[in-house]
Amino acid sequence: MKVYKLETVQHLNVSIEKCWDFFSSPQNLETLTPNDMSFVIQDFDGKKMYPGQVITYTLKPLLGIKINWMTIITVSQENKYFVDEQRFGPYALWHHKHFFEPTESGVKMTDVVHYALPFGFLGQLANKIMVRNKLKSIFEYRHNKIEELFNLK
Rank of each mutant, 00 (worst) to 15 (best):
M1R: 11
K2E: 11
Y4L: 07
L6E: 02
T8Q: 11
H11A: 08
N13P: 00
N13Q: 13
V14F: 03
V14Q: 07
I16D: 04
K18M: 08
D21I: 02
D21P: 01
F22H: 07
F22Y: 15
F22S: 05
S24T: 03
S25R: 06
N28R: 11
T33C: 11
D36F: 14
D36G: 04
Q42M: 11
D43Q: 14
F44D: 07
G46H: 10
K47G: 06
K48C: 05
Y50P: 08
P51L: 10
P51K: 11
Q53N: 11
V54Y: 07
V54R: 15
I55K: 00
T56M: 08
T58C: 11
T58P: 02
T58V: 13
L59I: 06
K60V: 06
K60G: 05
P61I: 03
P61C: 07
L62A: 15
L62F: 15
L62D: 06
L62K: 09
L62C: 09
L63I: 11
G64V: 08
I67H: 08
N68V: 01
N68D: 12
W69Y: 10
T71N: 14
I72L: 10
I73N: 05
I73L: 10
T74G: 08
T74L: 07
V75R: 14
V75W: 09
E78Q: 13
N79V: 01
K80E: 13
K80N: 12
V83D: 03
V83P: 02
R87Q: 15
F88L: 13
G89M: 08
G89V: 03
G89F: 04
G89L: 04
P90H: 04
Y91R: 06
W94K: 04
H98R: 10
F100V: 05
F100K: 00
P102G: 10
S105F: 09
G106P: 03
K108W: 02
M109G: 03
D111H: 06
D111Y: 05
D111A: 07
V113I: 15
L117S: 01
L117D: 00
P118I: 05
P118T: 09
F119Q: 07
G120F: 07
G123Q: 02
Q124Y: 05
Q124F: 03
L125F: 12
A126Y: 04
A126I: 02
K128V: 09
I129D: 04
N133S: 15
L135N: 02
S137F: 05
F139H: 04
E140K: 15
Y141E: 03
R142T: 04
I146C: 01
I146P: 00
E147H: 11
E147D: 14
L149S: 04
F150C: 06
F150Q: 01
F150H: 02
L152V: 01
L152C: 06
L152Q: 13
